[in-house]
Write a protein that binds this DNA or RNA. Structure first.
Lengths: 120, 120
DNA sequence: ACGGTATTTCTAGTATATTCGAAATATCAG
DNA sequence: CTGATATTTCGAATATACTAGAAATACCGT
């Protein structure tokens, strides 16, 4: 991950409508959500949302696929994960103990079901 | 963490000079770096950097403390961690298995030494 | 082809961000 | 107090972002 790519992704997420849009799409994984439905959920005009979705798309944080008359948008979790790792690795590199609380918090929020997960 | 706070932090990090500034400060933890030294490292005029540092400060991502004639800036890793968790928890909430790769990657980057460091 | 639905592109007004020279503020040494 | 250093604030130019009405494009059923 280049810094340019990270800046693009962070800029895409640093606007409230877009951050809400991305978060909503994450919650709708893996089905995705049509542009119009997302506009209704977020209560913004469809063309305004379209501009925001185009910015999220350029940042590779969402993907889209036409499905009949609708265009279904989905969160690109792999890209999102890469951005998170890009940011967090700076902390880890300089101060390994800094990331430990993040790992701990993520473990408690990520493994609420105690599922057999290769190495819990 | 409210979404307003997250947007403020993401906006602060979504500009290349500021992202580089923050990353540089993270690498200089826990000593911090004087504003002028940081300006020299980043090769930007001191007053330009000052404007950026003020935005990072408003987002609570850095702290500053006067030390004689210099003002020492430090990364606020707790705030940064909270922003990371705010973002990642959306993934985890909707799809717990999404965060697993992040946790794994962080573990391999954060725990390379297995040091007994009780309080870092 | 035609009408209806879904979404995007065009366009423009308004707001916010970025940059940096110049001036102001704060600190220290003599 | 004066001079030197470190940083911030002011002010103004330039650039980019946000918003949404209107028009255009794409798709579907008949």
């Amino acid at each position: 991950m280049e810094i340019e790519e990270a800046v693009l992704a962070l800029a895409a997420l640093s606007q409230s409508t877009r951050l809400e849009a991305f978060r909503t799409l994450v919650r709708h994984e893996p089905d995705g959500l049509a542009a119009g439905d997302l506009a209704r959920v977020l209560e913004v005009p469809p063309n305004t949302l379209s501009a925001h979705l185009s910015i999220l798309t350029r940042a590779q944080l969402v993907t889209s696929e036409r499905h009949s008359r609708s265009i279904i948008y989905r969160a690109n979790l792999a890209e999102f994960r890469d951005v998170a790792l890009f940011l967090l690795r700076d902390c880890c590199g300089g101060r390994p103990e800094v990331c430990a609380p993040v790992v701990e918090s993520l473990q408690s929020c990520c493994s609420p079901k105690r599922k057999e997960r290769t190495r819990g």
